[in-house]
């Protein structure tokens, strides 16, 4: 009874195990694509645009553009993977393959489904971020090993998106909702929440909006840790804000899962 009531229960572990079993069949292609994309951005913007930036007025505190960009991309990639893994796979498991129905016929419950899913997403985000960091270090794009501290920040960013997106996916009947999420949520955040430039460059109103996005907090935390410039107060604020999105998202997901699956 006690084990079953724990958040990371045997049922939740079994859910994660099922997903990992599937992942073993496609991990190569998946790892390549989840690292290749941020690496391409890093090369394209960091090495080309970065040179112009560094030769021009430059960034505040004289930070090299590549060092500025790398942790930002790490957090943004975590956002994208955490969100994506919580869209089609979740709706598919609810509606198309109905694998959640199969799980609910066992002693496992709705909460196990959710926790197991989030554990799996955490694994995916964590391993992708680690590999991306490995690439950074190997290619000499990291001027300090402090950049490794950005890993937990990226993980937290991934979860701050995975949990609420999971809750959202369980309310959908079909996939057009995902295109809207991408177009009006993920993509604007990717472009305007501080990944590529300091949000202080934005007009005042949009700057304020950027501060409210979880991605800005993830990027700022990852970057501050990587550059060794962060102070305790802002760091705690970022962590708290990302945790809030994760926890509230998970609580909402329990509700949307229950409404959808327990009928």
């Amino acid at each position: 009874m006690a084990a079953r009531d724990a958040i990371i229960s045997p049922g939740a572990l079994a859910v994660a195990e099922q997903r990992l079993t599937a992942y073993r069949h496609f991990w190569r292609s998946s790892l390549v694509s989840s690292v290749l994309e941020p690496a391409l951005f890093l090369a394209a913007m960091g090495l080309t645009l970065g040179v112009l930036v560094d030769r021009g007025t430059g960034l505040p505190d004289g930070v090299a553009y590549l060092s500025f960009l790398a942790p930002g991309l790490l957090a943004a990639a975590a956002m994208q993977l955490g969100s994506f893994e919580s869209t089609y796979p979740v709706l598919g498991a609810i509606k198309w393959q109905k694998t959640y129905e199969a799980v609910l016929a066992t002693p496992a419950g709705v909460r196990d489904l959710l926790v197991g899913h989030l554990l799996y997403v955490a694994f995916r985000v964590g391993t992708s971020a680690a590999l991306f960091l490995g690439v950074l270090v190997l290619f000499g794009a990291a001027d300090s090993l402090l950049v490794l501290l950005a890993l937990p920040a990226a993980l937290l960013t991934g979860m701050a998106f995975a949990a609420p997106v999971t809750a959202f996916s369980a309310t959908l009947e079909n996939d057009p909702g995902f295109a809207a999420l991408q177009r009006f949520g993920i993509l604007p955040m990717f472009l305007f929440s501080g990944t590529f430039f300091p949000v202080a460059q934005l007009p005042a109103f949009f700057e304020a909006v950027a501060y409210a996005t979880p991605l800005w907090h993830g990027v700022s935390l990852a970057r501050g840790l990587a550059l060794g410039t962060i102070e305790a107060g802002p760091a705690l604020l970022h962590v708290g804000y990302l945790l809030l999105w994760s926890v509230v998202g998970a609580a909402l997901a329990v509700r949307t899962f229950t409404r959808r699956l327990v009928t």
């Binding site: 099922q18 079993t21 599937a22 069949h25 393959q97 109905k98 799980v103 016929a105 002693p107 496992a108």
Partner: peptide, 24 residues
């Protein structure tokens, strides 16, 4: 169930192994 809800991403045998884990 009325409609099969197997995990189509994994093998036949894995479907059994994975499912058994839900029963501990």
């Amino acid at each position: 169930p009325q409609t099969d809800n197997l995990d189509v991403e994994i093998t036949v045998e894995e479907n059994l192994l994975v499912y058994g884990r839900y029963f501990g």
